[in-house]
Amino acid sequence: MKNIFLVLVLALIFQATAKAQTCDDLPANFRSYNEATRAIQNTSFVLSDELPFGKSSWFLSAAYYSCDNYFGYLVYSTQDRTEHILEGVPLKVWTEFKTAKVTVTYYIQNVKGKYRMVPD
């Protein structure tokens, strides 16, 4: 019985790691928002971080994914339930956004319109 359990656990681990791709596998450009979302969800990033729940009333969620600890993807959804992906956002900008007293003000002043929307 223990051997069957061990085999099942190993099979699940192998399946989970087999689906993960590396940053090198990410395309230079995405054809659609859905393609970008799937690729980001299936990639093992060097850094992934999230805006704490309840930190902002305007952002329902926000997450940051980086391959190199310098630049990355900012993925967020807003009150009106629209979802967006920004590419090439510096880690410093993410950190300042995440720790800003008012995230929406920081976003408007320092992020909005300054980074490429995926897909463009």
Rank of each mutant, 00 (worst) to 15 (best):
M1G: 12
N3L: 12
N3F: 09
I4L: 11
I4Q: 10
L6D: 04
V7D: 02
V7N: 02
L8K: 01
L8H: 00
V9W: 00
V9R: 00
A11E: 00
A11D: 00
L12S: 03
I13C: 05
I13Y: 08
F14A: 11
F14K: 01
F14E: 00
F14M: 02
Q15P: 00
A16F: 02
T17G: 02
T17A: 01
T17L: 08
T17S: 03
K19S: 02
A20T: 05
A20E: 10
T22S: 15
C23R: 00
D24S: 09
D24F: 03
D24V: 00
D25G: 00
L26E: 07
L26S: 02
P27V: 02
A28N: 14
N29P: 00
N29C: 03
N29L: 13
R31W: 06
R31Q: 13
Y33F: 11
N34R: 14
T37H: 12
T37I: 12
R38K: 08
R38F: 06
A39F: 10
I40D: 04
I40R: 04
Q41I: 07
Q41L: 12
Q41H: 13
N42Y: 02
T43C: 05
S44N: 09
S44K: 15
V46M: 14
V46Y: 12
L47P: 01
L47Q: 15
S48M: 07
S48C: 02
S48T: 12
E50T: 11
L51Q: 03
L51E: 01
L51T: 06
P52H: 04
P52D: 09
F53Y: 12
F53R: 14
G54I: 10
K55W: 06
S57H: 05
W58I: 11
W58V: 10
L60T: 08
A63T: 10
Y64M: 05
Y65P: 06
Y65Q: 08
S66R: 05
S66D: 07
D68H: 11
D68K: 10
N69Y: 15
G72R: 04
G72D: 02
L74I: 13
L74R: 04
L74D: 08
L74G: 03
S77K: 11
T78S: 13
T78W: 01
T78Q: 07
D80I: 07
R81W: 14
R81Q: 13
T82R: 12
T82Y: 15
T82S: 11
E83W: 10
H84Y: 13
H84V: 07
H84N: 15
L86S: 06
E87D: 11
G88K: 08
V89E: 04
L91I: 08
K92M: 15
V93W: 01
V93T: 09
V93Q: 07
W94G: 07
T95P: 04
T95F: 13
A100I: 10
K101Q: 11
V102N: 15
V102W: 14
T103E: 11
V104T: 13
V104I: 14
V104S: 14
T105R: 13
T105W: 08
Y106K: 08
I108Q: 10
Q109P: 05
Q109F: 14
N110D: 15
V111W: 01
V111D: 13
K112M: 12
K112Q: 15
Y115D: 04
M117P: 03
M117I: 15
V118D: 04
V118K: 01
V118E: 08
P119H: 10
P119A: 14
P119R: 09
P119N: 09
